[in-house]
Amino acid sequence: MNVETPLIRTLMAERFGEAIEELGFSHGVHAFAAPPDMIVDLCRFLKEDPALQFDFLSDICGVDHYPEMPRYEAVYHLFSLPNKWRVRIKCRLGDPPRVPSVTGVWRTANWHERETWDMYGIRFEGHPDLRRIYMWEGFEGFPQRKDFPLRGYKDKLNPFGAEGSPPTQPDLATKDIPQGGRSTPRT
């Protein structure tokens, strides 16, 4: 199972030199750490390299390592349909967290990145439509950050929340029709 690690590492080193750090192979996944400014090139390379063909983006998610610094991390899980290999790429991000968007490489990254933005406030630069996806427009804070209280802030609808400014109320469905930000990439 582990024979492909040297291959992936060698191919990466040929292209990117020492910038990509290898984190080892565990539980069926090869892990690498990459600097944020290389993420798009790296993803495109992994997807298009004929020996690797990581053509399927499984997941993008954020991790908050508060109070450790650098605080945030964007984690990408890639899968190669022809080879059945899995790769994890981790990107440590400072505060405020910013990372280039990979929507140009996979269209499926669109919602994953919107979710990560909504939950962790990681800004994906170059994303065509970076709106909140779970919470409503106008919601304050990023709920999955470690310093956001689990129960939110107290108001009439949730008397168990933490003390603080009560959350804004969402608009009714009929009001918040999006004006800009066309999210359809093709016609």
Binding site: Y134, M135, P143, F148, P149, L150, R151, G152, Y153, K156, L157, N158, P159, F160, G161, P167
Partner: peptide, 17 residues
């Protein structure tokens, strides 16, 4: 009552509104 989901996103019971 909101049940197990006592979180930032969930209304704690329909009775509140």
């Amino acid at each position: 009552s909101g049940g197990v989901y006592n979180t930032y996103a969930v209304v704690q019971g329909a009775e509140t509104f």
